[in-house]
Each structure stands twice: as structure tokens, then as C-alpha cells.
Amino acid sequence: MEIIQIVGLGLIATVLILVVREQKPLFAFLLAAFTGLFIFLFLLGKIDSVIAVLSDLANRSGIPSIYLKTVLKIIGIAYIAEFGAQIVRDAGQESIASKIEFAGKILILVMAVPIISVIIETVINLLPTGGGAS
């Protein structure tokens, strides 16, 4: 029944923000930010169970733990970047929001660097050594 709580909280926050916005736009923004933060933290516990299932799957199937670690880092970066970008976007700063998303994308790509380096190394080793042999 958490969905009722969350929707109720969202509706109340929306009404309050509509009321307050005319007088104090700053407080309306703060209210929106804190509502978003609360819902985010509220759902963090639920995500925990999904991640537990994922790690259980990884452990049981014997895939290297480094894969799971990378995947979990990707999910975490995506969530945090998304959350920050949404709050900033609510405040009307579209450009900063897009910069935050950009940073998230870059950090996700950074995760791929060691994997890419291993693959490239292998492919180079695969080639016959010494180009002059052909």
C-alpha cells in the first residue's frame, strides 16, 4: 500500500506548491525538492530487494563479481544523475540539468574503459605479430 502513500504525498505537495508559488516561488521549489527527495529515499529500500535478487543471481550462476559491480555502479550513477537533473529542471534551469545528465553519461562510459582495454588488448594479441609477415 505504499503507492497510496506516495501518490497522496505527491498530490498534497502539488496543491501546496500551487498555493505557495504565487507568493514565494523559492519555497515552492524547496517543497518540490524535498518531496522528491523523500520519495526517492522511500523507494531506495525497495530497490534494495531487487539488487539482492540480482546479486543472488550473479552468485549462483558464477559470473565474475566484477561484472555485477560494474552493473550496479551503472544503475547507481543513472539514478543519482536522474534525480539531481529532475530537481534542477524543476527549478527551471534546463541547461544545468542537461549538464548533470551529461556528467552521468560520461561516468557510465568511464565504467567501460577497463573492459574496452581488455578487449582491445586481446584483439591486438590475436593479430599475427609483426605486420611484415603477410
Binding site: V53, Y67, T70, V71, I74, A78, K105, I108, L109
Partner: peptide, 21 residues
């Protein structure tokens, strides 16, 4: 694991990059 990760992702913006990794 990959399918679960894509389900968990918050929005489409990150999807392409995540898919790459």
C-alpha cells in the same frame, strides 16, 4: 543481468550508454 539492469534504469537518456557497457 543485462535485462534486469535495463528494467531498473530510470530513464531513456542513459539507456544507450548503459547498453554499450
Amino acid at each position: 543481468l543485462a535485462v534486469c539492469t535495463e528494467l531498473l534504469l530510470p530513464n531513456k537518456a542513459m539507456l544507450r550508454y548503459t547498453r554499450l557497457v
